[in-house]
Design a protein around this nucleic acid. Structure first.
Lengths: 211, 211
DNA sequence: GGTCATTTAAAACACTCGTTTTAATTTGTC
DNA sequence: GACAAATTAAAACGAGTGTTTTAAATGACC
């Protein structure tokens, strides 16, 4: 923590704190104290608190989105060369698996995923727009892929169902960073890989439900 | 707006504003101005901002939860007297239908539902706890009912899938209050009754997916 | 080594927030 | 109408926020 420069230290501290406490509950003073930096350094390096948030999100989300997009595009291209429909389950897996697997990529990853999961339903536009802008092309890519996988499904219905999947994902992503409330007689839900597999199964069944 | 007392006017204004802007972005000054009341009236009538939130949520959520619980219990009792399993789709319908139908119950209902939908994933415990406390018994009732409907399913898996359903619901509830972003070539998702029906179909298919 | 741009430090600014205090007013009751 | 309780009004409090300003320190380069 001593070698890296101030900008990175702030970025790391902000990521951790934004994700754990939420964007608006994290003050710049808390961030700079954690990062062992001066208060003004945030505005110097990132322009504003919003700029910092944008940097935090982009740093991690860009590679993740790239990974997901690559997988989806690969599925689509091989399906095209083999002259068949892409499989719903493959597309969903390409979207879901890297996202949930990301939670194991080092410390703070679970919290970052929670930040992203929460971003979609933020009441404040600052966070939501920043997220949507980053992720919308990927959503569209997935949607277009699913349309090829299930062309007989009416488009509004497919889109509606895709929204359900996104909601389920968002919720799971958020929940990962919270201590699960345990109730006597009620088991704990799955986590990690089995959860991802279960979500793929669930989403696939839902998407392929009869019309 | 002139006849009703200050307490109710504050409650109405707070409901509208909390739901639209979010709890933490709504100041007591905005609320009291909207309600045409004095700033101190909030602390006088509700003790604190949190107390006001609690009152706002309880006023609407209690009857809604009662309605959902009644329907679920009725399904369970008739299934018991007919000595058969309750149907997954019936249980889900009892849970989903009143919730989404609630959005048509007068002005501000859509926003209130968004407030509730957001509450589940709120980073701040103030809002989340207030919501969870109200809704947990209903979740357990639904879970126990689904366990009877699908006894062959491992409990952690059932619970995990139920979480997916809740996530999908939460997301839909939030989205209802937002202007939908329209993209050329991408249709709008369903709303209102068809959306509720589609969600029941989706959730049922997901829950009944093979293990 | 001196010069200049980059970076860090410390302090103050301007503003908003929830809450509290004190006083005035309204309302209910005998 | 008078008294007491409930309610409303106005003002200030104290703490916290993001941002800006001004000054000091650091580092690169000729």
């Amino acid at each position: 923590m001593t070698q890296i420069d101030t900008k990175s230290r702030i970025l790391n501290a902000a990521e951790q704190l934004f994700a754990k406490e939420g964007y608006h509950f994290t003050s710049l003073r808390t961030i700079t104290t954690t990062a062992d930096a001066n208060l003004a350094a945030v505005n110097y390096h990132f322009g504003s608190k919003e700029g910092l948030l944008k940097a935090v999100i982009e740093r991690r989300l860009k590679p993740l989105n790239q990974r997901r997009a690559d997988r989806i595009e690969k599925i689509l291209s091989t399906a095209a060369t083999e002259q068949r429909r892409p499989r719903t389950t493959d597309l969903l897996r390409a979207f879901i698996e890297p996202t949930l697997a990301f939670r194991n990529e080092g410390p703070g990853a679970v919290e970052f995923i929670a930040l992203i999961g929460r971003a979609m339903n933020e009441p404040d536009e600052t966070v939501r727009n920043c997220f949507i802008q980053q992720v919308m092309p990927l959503f569209i890519l997935l949607y277009e892929g699913l349309k090829k996988a299930r062309p007989e499904l009416a488009e509004e219905i497919l889109l509606t169902r895709l929204h359900f999947v996104l909601g389920a994902m968002s919720h799971v992503m958020c929940a990962g960073a919270r201590p699960q409330i345990s109730i006597p007689g009620i088991p704990q839900p799955l986590t990690d890989t089995p959860q991802a597999e279960e979500m793929i199964r669930f989403a696939c069944a839902g998407l392929e439900a009869p019309c």
